[in-house]
Write a protein that binds this DNA or RNA. Structure first.
Lengths: 340, 340
DNA sequence: CCGGTTTACGCAACCGGTTGCGTTATCTTG
DNA sequence: CAAGATAACGCAACCGGTTGCGTAAACCGG
């Protein structure tokens, strides 16, 4: 057996084996100067032979670094995993962390109980924090920067100094979809937006209106509904039965779009001929709706990856990169909009 | 300000404030005997006033416990979060951990690179491990028990001594669905199963065949396909075009069932009149297919919850419970099977 | 009021690494 | 070859808690 088990070796055991002091072993392991070449080689050999691994807890206690990144959601964990985009972000962050030799600590925060999270950061159980669900109003962001914790936001373009963020082009995607509707001859559009305090929804609104403004004489409205299929269906029924019913509805999420499809079916409208519908998120069910949903795929894997590496750069592990990154989205055209 | 910030207080600072030794503060904090009532009260007051919090790293170094539970997936993180059931389990585990004051460390393991994971366990960065994706063949399970790590499996009924597990009644659910088909008069059934090495698929097969056997003179077959809509569609086309085409297909997942629905549509078959179809998992898209899918909802939240508390019991935090738990499933009847 | 037990608390070692500083050995260079 | 510079390494303190053991004071019954 070479580098197998034999647990619980300490650095002083290795030092004794090599006939040196513990400090020398530590320096040799960490590639620091002050160790002779032959000694270094001998120590490396002994470490490999006995399968010694440093105790991360002890190292952390003396260095103050844990090689762990925290992923913080101001939600219950069970809410996180049901979300359309958070799980994918978490997965990408996990991949990047594993590849960089970091561990991933999942931090959840029900309500405003930030004490435990701040404590975890203060005590350096995590070296930095990614917030994939950061809202503009969350006080936790300011608290984290006040603590000096390297912080990266996803989906919220904060202006706070020191914090980095990664976001994607919600506005461009919304504009593209809107233009798609206009190009197909639709002249009465509605943006069925999500809650307007959500950063992504603000951007989607901006994209929608910029395309409308550029087109000139178009009838356009915007309404806000929760990210909920039933609520969206009710809102869509109102719109479609009211004055000047829309011939195209741009929705801020696939769940909302699913509600619109339900409403269209209820009224016997044909999609996309009578009504064009688009979603956002490209959730798994988007391909199973009837008709299959035109939607927007966000670069979730790249986003998580970029956020992780931005954090590693802040921690000094990698060369500095930009602290503000905007990644491109991709419009996925299916059958709920007219074919170009 | 009472219990606000003022970071970096040590237990010796508190001891000096209270006019006692660090050891006494430690004992007072942890509710150990050997501290007078008045001293205890004074220490508690000073701790509250200054907002002192123990350093979990230092505590871990001396006690060997981290109040952290590991969730181990022998996969890449990005594969985990795309899975139909793992995210929900992760969420439930996270909720339970937060409520119990535990942190959650996400451990992923690409390929057979178990060294880092075993190291994390050996060094007690986690007090115990939950494996929501345990396969019968995984050597990691034996390695964990060899290390003496409290281990709880989800979805794999291991016979190894010491390990606990939580599973649900895949067999009963499959039998119920099969019986549903039989009660509706279907006489040519197919189980379109997933990969047969998956524990849940074995159970689903057993349930299917037990219902068939009990019914007597029935034509029944079983085929295995990957959990993939396109592959399932191809297999279903073969079956439906072949001799003795089935009038009911019980599928081992919603993704497989979606493929069967696609095949039925291709052939112009009416579901459920010509062909009854059922899925498994109750994924979000099951309600959006046409017709909406009859499927099985698994008690994912309860499963995660039970696994977490079984682990806490093993760690001595809670009274002992059973180490083998089987939770009931729920058949969700929608429109892809004949109404009873 | 006294011997013996219990209680309250301090002291110091320990968990397992890291690191500043001092000492000795080796290497330059004039 | 002597003197100064440099490299290699040991020593011990330190990170911030926990805990076994020793001791002095408070308590007990007789």
């Amino acid at each position: 057996m070479t580098a197998a088990k034999n647990d619980k070796l300490t650095i002083r055991d290795i030092a004794a084996l090599a006939g040196v002091s513990a400090g020398t072993v530590s320096r040799a392991m960490n590639g620091q100067p002050g160790v002779g070449a032959s000694t270094r080689a001998r120590i490396a050999e002994i470490i490999a032979e006995h399968g010694f691994r440093v105790d991360p807890t002890a190292r952390q206690l003396s260095t103050g670094r844990s090689r762990t990144l925290g992923v913080l959601f101001p939600l219950h964990a069970s809410e996180v995993v049901l979300h359309p985009v958070y799980p994918a972000l978490l997965g990408a962050l996990g991949d990047a962390a594993e590849r960089a030799g970091y561990d991933l600590l999942l931090l959840t925060m029900s309500g405003q109980k930030s004490a435990h999270v701040l404590d975890t950061v203060t005590r350096r159980r995590v070296d930095g924090v990614v917030l994939p669900a950061a809202g503009a109003r969350d006080p936790i962001i300011k608290q984290l920067v006040a603590l000096g914790a390297p912080t990266v936001l996803i989906g919220h373009r904060s202006t706070l100094p020191g914090v980095g963020w990664v976001d994607c082009t919600h506005d461009v995607a919304a504009a593209e979809l809107t233009q798609l509707m206009l190009d197909a001859g639709r002249r009465s559009l509605v943006l069925l937006n999500g809650p307007t305090h959500v950063s992504a929804c603000k951007l989607r609104s901006a994209g929608f209106w910029s395309a409308i403004k550029a087109a000139g004489d178009i009838s356009a409205r915007e309404t806000s509904v929760p990210f909920d299929t039933a609520a969206a269906a009710a809102a869509a029924l109102d719109l479609l039965r009211g004055d000047n019913p829309p011939d195209a509805i741009v929705c801020a999420s696939d769940t909302i779009a699913a509600g619109v499809l339900d409403a269209a079916r209820t009224l016997g409208l044909s999609v996309p001929d009578d009504l064009a519908v688009s979603g956002f998120d490209d959730r798994s069910f988007a391909v199973h709706t009837h008709p299959a949903l035109t939607t927007v795929r966000m670069p979730l894997h790249d986003t998580g990856h970029a956020a992780a590496h931005m954090l590693f750069a802040m921690l000094g592990d990698e060369p500095l990169t930009s602290r503000r990154i905007i990644l491109p989205t991709e419009v996925v055209i299916r059958d709920s909009t007219p074919q170009p």
